[in-house]
Design a protein around this nucleic acid. Structure first.
Length: 520
DNA sequence: ACGTGATGACTCC
DNA sequence: TGGAGTCCCTCACG
């Protein structure tokens, strides 16, 4: 918790150094450099680099002005006691330099283990605490208090409609349509290919659904219309009924989180519910029936991924930034039970076995570990099975949707792999490797690309690529089934992709809040 | 002015 | 060191 506080403060200090009027300045592109007296300070203060020339020993008018600017900046910063405040904070929160080196390896692990089990303040029925810097400007205070939505249920008020607007009644009707009782037998692969071939993207199947970059997207199981949800970088969740009318062509925009919505999924048992987790540390459940976002789980650190652990979707496994998984039981409303288990901090993705729900796979660093949730320990839980062969970090790992006999991974070593997890032996064998450019443009701006199964089948998956811009559907053998290429209505990188659970449709989300649906 | 969309930059080990 | 891992932050273009 201490480190987190430090981090927040550091961020605040950084932004203050750059503001108020100058802006951060350009970091490169000297050929476009123009001398502009108002905009010089930050530019020349960039760490370790300077544009100053000292060939002649004396100072040029430009350099003199720069020094004057630095002096003025420092005077401003001193006037608000910032230096003093940061020094005090450093002493409070950081170990001395001589101690810092010790906090590594075993010592660090021991220090971590010695910490009491973390539990959110909400679950402890305590008020959230906020750290306030002495003499802190209001803007910074706002930054800190706005980091999280208040605990408890949030009303489902669309922020793109007039205040007090009710949800359209058609939404509840549509959301009540659940998954089909019986799953159809898999189509013959040839028929599947021709179904894919009929899938098109048109002007009507593209819409801006959220404002920020899309981090997660999911199809609602209904079939009478297509309904898609998307979560963005700003913590907003958008619902889009294709062909919808009214404000924004059937888009409803909500604000259940304040930071990127890292993962979302409709409940299979209660299709009126959409669960979403966020880097802001909260996991909420949108309930269309009650028109609220329930507060399911909430910790200080960011939540990265989750999956349902029970058929009724009441138990979840949730992975956070610290590499912990929490088993969250929401059967008793308002009294969520959680248990935390430390795994590797590089934890990226969790996936529950579709049939044997006690098993879940975790992408950790360069290995996928499959654990038994009944045998979890606080740390160093032994894996039931391991998947080896990745040479860089793994960005996603998913059990095949029907039997769980296969596991699909996407790795930064530019390979997609399929493992055989049918026997769940100590080491699950690798079946197929497919070379694929899994790198996106700057991952700060776009999320990493991941291969995801088509939930209608046991053996096919979709993955998008940024260069060339395309979306591909593969069979687990590595055989390409469909290649959607850059063309009319589709010319962006779809960093997030998801198939419809029963219809021939899939959706891609791009870096500017736009959803693109391919359907027949 | 504003929406759009993308192959850095930084730190850590 | 330099490659791997990580995302707090942007900005040129039409």
């Amino acid at each position: 918790m201490e480190t987190r506080r430090t981090k927040r403060v550091t961020v605040a200090v950084q932004s203050l150094e750059m503001s108020p009027a100058e802006g951060p300045g350009r970091r490169s592109a000297p050929k476009r450099y123009r001398y502009s007296p108002e905009k010089t300070h930050a530019k020349t203060q960039k760490k370790g680099k300077t544009t100053t020339r000292s060939d002649h020993g004396g100072l040029s008018p430009y350099e003199l002005e720069r020094l004057e600017n630095i002096r003025q900046n420092q005077a401003f910063l001193s006037s608000i006691n910032l230096f003093q405040a940061t020094e005090e904070l450093k002493q409070l929160t950081q170990p001395k330099a001589s101690q810092r080196r010790l906090l590594s390896g075993r010592v660090k692990a021991a220090a971590k283990e010695a910490l009491p089990a973390r539990k959110s303040l909400r679950l402890q029925n305590k008020e959230p605490n906020t750290l306030i810097l002495p003499g802190e400007p209001e803007g910074l205070l706002y930054m800190q208090t706005s980091l999280k939505k208040p605990p408890g249920p949030l009303p489902m008020d669309p922020i793109n409609m007039d205040e007090g607007s009710k949800l359209p009644s058609s939404l509840l009707e549509l959301c009540s349509e659940g998954y089909p009782e019986e799953r159809k037998v898999d189509l013959d692969l040839k028929d599947y290919r021709s179904a894919l071939k009929n899938m098109r993207i048109t002007e009507d199947t593209v819409a801006k659904v959220v404002k920020g970059h899309i981090y997660s997207a999911s199809f609602h199981p209904c079939t009478s219309s297509l309904l898609v949800a998307a979560g963005d970088k700003l913590g907003n969740v958008g619902l889009w009924k294709l062909g919808g009318e009214g404000v924004d062509d059937g888009v409803l925009l909500f604000e259940p989180h304040t930071r990127p919505v890292s993962c979302m999924a409709f409940s299979r048992a209660h299709p009126t519910q959409l669960l979403s987790c966020s880097y802001d540390g909260s996991l909420r459940c949108m309930d269309v029936e009650k028109a609220v976002f329930h507060d399911v789980y909430d910790i200080e650190d960011g939540l990265r991924t989750f999956d349902f652990m029970s058929r009724d979707c009441s138990t979840l496994v949730v992975g956070n930034w610290l590499g912990e998984v929490a088993i969250v039981d929401r059967r008793t409303p308002g009294n969520t039970h959680e248990s935390l288990h430390s795994l590797d901090k590089t934890l990226r993705c969790v996936s529950v076995h579709p049939l044997q729900k006690q098993y879940f796979a975790v992408a950790e660093r360069r290995t996928v570990n499959i654990y038994d949730s009944r045998c979890l320990k606080n740390s160093k839980t032994p894996a039931v099975s391991q998947l080896h062969g990745h040479s860089l970090s793994i960005s996603s790992a998913y059990f095949s949707p029907c039997t769980g006999n296969r596991l699909l991974t996407t790795c930064m070593d530019e390979m997609i792999r399929i493992y055989d997890t049918s026997s769940m032996t100590e080491k699950s064998p690798l079946l197929t490797s497919i070379r694929h450019n899994t790198h996106t443009a700057r991952p700060t701006k776009l999320t990493k690309l991941s291969a995801v199964w088509d939930p209608k089948r046991e053996d096919c998956f979709v993955v998008s690529s940024s260069r060339p811009r395309s979306v591909q559907v593969f069979h687990q053998s590595g055989q390409l089934q469909r290649h959607f290429v850059d063309g009319e209505n589709f010319n962006t990188v779809l960093s997030v992709a998801a198939f419809h659970p029963s219809r021939n449709a899939f959706v891609g989300g791009n870096g500017s809040g736009r959803l693109q649906v391919f359907s027949d």
